[in-house]
């Protein structure tokens, strides 16, 4: 079922208004101290402060730069290794068990080692984002390469398309609809761990913003930070969805990605 853009917007507005209304009502009962549950107005004012004093832009900028570095390096390395392992099943047979053991480990668990190996500053957060994004990209690429329609390989053989052209001109684009799925999942999990990474190791960024607000007992700014993280994550997700739609339309294929 397709809803009109107007109705869609109306639904979103109603849903958010309901949330804020309930929140305001709970605050009005007076059963929670303002430091435990700040009112919507106070949080809005907090967001206003963060925007007007420029700290939002600088923290968001730092976070996005770390995110981009970690996410894109994980995507490129994940795809390259995935292409390699997808083409050479014997190598993958040895790598697969290692990946299966490492994958369920939260990137945050590596934090003690990350600090020992990479020190402090931007790098630990980037490494955590990298780990979070790497596995979905790697695994979707390996399985994507395996699912490449045999007809493309026949065409490549027939027209004498040899390695490495075969890998980058035939196999990678043919597997891309599957890889896009992994890229989308990686984006979500990387954004989640960006904030976690910045909370334990950084002196700037959206995660740090929340820790800093907590340390100065500003619960309104904590909530403001949470809202901003949610909104930017949502915008990133929409952005990649837009890219996927463009590719789907042009190729006439379904990428079958997340929502």
């Amino acid at each position: 079922m397709r809803m009109g853009i107007f109705r869609k917007t109306a639904v979103v507005v109603v849903s958010l208004s309901l949330l804020i209304g309930v929140w305001e009502l709970v605050v009005l009962t007076g059963r929670f101290a303002p430091s435990l549950l700040p009112s919507p107005a106070k949080v809005a004012a907090g967001i206003g402060d963060l925007i007007s004093d420029g700290s939002l832009i600088s923290h968001l900028g730092v976070s996005l730069a770390r995110f981009a570095t970690g996410y894109f390096s994980a995507s490129v390395i994940g795809m390259l290794l995935g292409l390699l392992f997808g083409c050479y099943k014997r190598i993958w047979a040895f790598i697969d068990p290692i990946v299966q053991v490492l994958r369920p480990v939260s990137p945050i668990a590596w934090f003690p080692f990350i600090v020992l190996w990479f020190g402090i500053g931007d790098v630990p957060a980037i490494v955590i984002i990298f780990i979070a994004a790497f596995y979905p990209v790697l695994l979707s690429t390996v399985s994507g390469v395996r699912k490449v329609d045999a007809i493309y390989l026949k065409v490549a053989d027939n027209f004498d398309v040899r390695q490495p052209k075969r890998l980058f001109k035939i196999i990678l684009p043919a597997a891309f609809p599957f890889i896009a799925n992994g890229l989308h999942m990686a984006l979500g999990s990387a954004w989640v761990f960006l904030v976690a990474g910045e909370m334990v190791g950084a002196q700037s960024g959206l995660g740090y913003l929340i820790i800093d607000a907590r340390n100065s007992l500003r619960s309104d700014l904590v909530l403001a930070g949470i809202i901003l993280i949610g909104v930017s994550g949502l915008l990133l997700d929409r952005l990649i969805r837009l890219l996927e739609n463009g590719i789907e339309k042009q190729w006439g294929v379904s990428l079958g990605g997340g929502t």
Partner: peptide, 19 residues
């Protein structure tokens, strides 16, 4: 003993590269 550009196969589902 192997495919060659001297003999090109045309398939029922075309085998075009959608990208």
């Amino acid at each position: 003993d192997k495919p060659s550009v001297d003999r090109i196969t045309i398939f029922q589902n075309y085998g075009l590269l959608p990208w």
